[in-house]
Amino acid sequence: MTSASKAPLLEVKQLCHQYIGQKKILDEVSFSIESGDRVALVGDNGAGKSTLLQLIVGLIPIQSGEIMVQSLKATHERDFIKVRTMIGLVFQDPDDQLFCPSVIEDVMFGPLNQGYSLQDAEQKSLAILEQLQLTHLSQRMASDLSGGEKRLVTLATVLVMEPKLLLLDEPTNALDDKAQQRLLSVLRSLEQGMIVISHDKDFLAQLTDRSLLLKAGKLTASL
């Protein structure tokens, strides 16, 4: 085994964050995720859960603390560009994530940015749509899809980049029972590790192995 594979997939050390004029939203938060771990991230509204996920992929600049992804210490934007190919963030609102005229193009967007050729990107995208049983949606426009379909398509757009860890920000938001069940079975079939933010206790219990509680800026393990 190389040293890289021994290191945890994601290690966060003493991460702090404070928005201007507000209390510290994250206060020396530390945790680590091994590959294949499925972790729930719970906490009240405004506790800083989404902020934490965005810090991990470098969408918000780090104020203090460390983020290590497979022993790569990420500090600058150029590090985070690499990090983002390993860690896929699925946003709360699918309309923020889907911006192409058709679903297939949206799925191809990531692989093309990773430098795959048009044919390869298309192959990969079709394969992932097939895996999620979404092939029939490939020519549809994102704004025409139902909430459940949009959610699965955003998942496809991230999965196609073959991340090792998925960050899901309230994936069950505004989904009906049927769509939730479908999402759950899709997520359970994936081998990737994931951090899931959700307020739905049943959903989390069926999907995750352990949970982290974010309260007053501090992160604690909870059962």
Binding site: Q54, V57, I81, G88, D96, F99, N113, T157
Partner: peptide, 16 residues
Amino acid sequence: RVVAAMKCRGYQGQFV
């Protein structure tokens, strides 16, 4: 948020 989501998928300021 859209730009953030695009960055997460490897966008670096130019469309392929």
